[in-house]
Amino acid sequence: MTTPASFLTEEMRNQAIGQKSEPRSIDIEKGAIIKFAQAIEDDNPLYNDEMVARDSRYGGLIAPPTFLRSVGVDRPPYPFDMPFNRMLDGGSDWEYFHPVRAGDRITAISEIADINERIGRMGLMVITSIVVTYRNQFGQVAATQTSTSIRY
């Protein structure tokens, strides 16, 4: 693959920043929480054992901190053709405001907060900062996740 020296223009950046996905809503199912906790091998009873979780201050199962990855939010659309098909995840910065409980309905929207380019080991990379906001059925922001998406 030939690598161009530059791809993003200031105009493209300005068009991209603020682009939002469609909202995605899912019901937080007990079984999905338990399956997720098993997959990450976290045996915390708050995620795995309803009897114990009922006696906790939550009154039932809650989701592990990164469970919201499974909501499957759409990516915000790029307002231009993105020629880099390969992707890496650069990291996540989560802030938590309310617990996510089994039975909640969570609605997620993602938004492009920033976009830049950089020459890396694998050539030109486009680095997008995406903020996902997760609201519960009461309209409360349960959490936000700012993730770094690398395209190359």
Binding site: D42, P65, G91, S92, D93, E95, Y96, T148
Partner: peptide
Amino acid sequence: TKWMGPNGDLKRLVAQY
């Protein structure tokens, strides 16, 4: 979350790959 125990609250979690 294991360290903070059942009455701790996670406020922020950052990971860089």
